[in-house]
C-alpha cells in the first residue's frame, strides 16, 4: 500500500531536506523524522521522510542470511 524508497540526505534546511537516490534529487519534508543528519539513508513516502535506515541492522541481517543460505545449501 505504500511505495517508499531509500534515499540519502544531502542537505537540511528547517523542515525540508534534499535527498538523493541514483542521481535523482528531491526536496522532501522531514517533520516526521526531524532528527535526521546529512548522509543518513532515509525512507521516503509521498514526499515525506518516514524513517531512517539503520545500517547496523542491515549489516547484521546480511550476515545472518549468509550463514542461513550456506547452511540450507549444505542440507540440500
Amino acid at each position: 500500500m505504500c511505495l517508499a524508497i531509500p534515499m540519502t540526505v544531502k542537505s537540511i534546511e528547517g523542515t525540508k531536506a534534499v535527498v538523493e537516490s541514483m542521481g535523482v534529487e528531491k526536496i522532501v519534508d522531514i517533520a516526521l523524522s526531524p532528527d535526521i543528519k546529512i548522509n543518513d539513508k532515509v525512507i521516503v513516502h509521498a514526499g515525506f521522510v518516514i524513517e531512517v535506515l539503520d545500517p547496523e541492522a542491515a549489516r547484521e541481517i546480511e550476515a545472518t542470511w549468509e550463514e542461513y543460505t550456506t547452511l540450507m545449501g549444505k542440507e540440500q
Binding site: 511505495l3 524508497i5 537516490s21 541514483m22 542521481g23 535523482v24 528531491k26
Partner: peptide
C-alpha cells in the same frame, strides 16, 4: 537503463 531513470521510476512508481 540509466540510474536516473531507475531512480525517477521508483520514486514515482
Amino acid at each position: 537503463i540509466r540510474d536516473e531513470v531507475k531512480g525517477v521510476s521508483e520514486i514515482l512508481g
